[in-house]
């Protein structure tokens, strides 16, 4: 397998070059697969209200709340599927849940 396909075995890799027994050599390479396009609604962080309890981080099924240094850091919109669980577990109403494409104040674009 050549360098280009080190992280992900691309669809154009022929059968001669795929790994033996279909082994995936890069642990955790699903992070190169975006699931953000599934979203119809998106969570938006309201910094002023956030008490950094990290319950949103704990309950996110998609590892899409990124904690930085023990605090809320940002949403990972590349992978967030917009399930809204973080919105409901937030004890201080610090997460807005808006339609995809809509904008709101305090919006955090992530990347």
């Amino acid at each position: 397998m050549n360098k280009k396909h080190e992280k992900v075995i691309a669809p154009d890799v022929g059968w001669r070059n795929v790994t033996r027994a279909g082994i995936i050599p890069t642990a955790g390479n699903a992070e190169y697969y975006e699931t953000g396009g599934w979203r119809t609604k998106k969570p938006v962080w309201i910094e002023d209200k956030c008490i950094h309890c990290l319950l949103c981080w704990r309950f996110c099924p998609d590892s899409s709340v990124i904690a930085e240094d023990g605090k809320f850091g940002r949403f990972d919109y590349e992978h967030c599927k917009g399930c809204g669980i973080c919105v409901n577990v937030c004890p201080s109403d610090a997460i807005d849940f808006i339609d995809e494409g809509e904008t709101s104040e305090g919006r955090n674009d992530g990347e």
């Binding site: 955790g28 975006e34 599934w38 590892s63 240094d69």
Partner: peptide, 24 residues
């Protein structure tokens, strides 16, 4: 949670479980 969040997360995003799945 603060301490837990500093550890490496073994399950990455980008898996294809349904939105809001309890498994994740």
């Amino acid at each position: 949670l603060k301490e837990q969040s500093k550890k490496e997360q073994i399950l990455t995003g980008g898996h294809r479980l349904c939105a809001g799945c309890g498994h994740g």
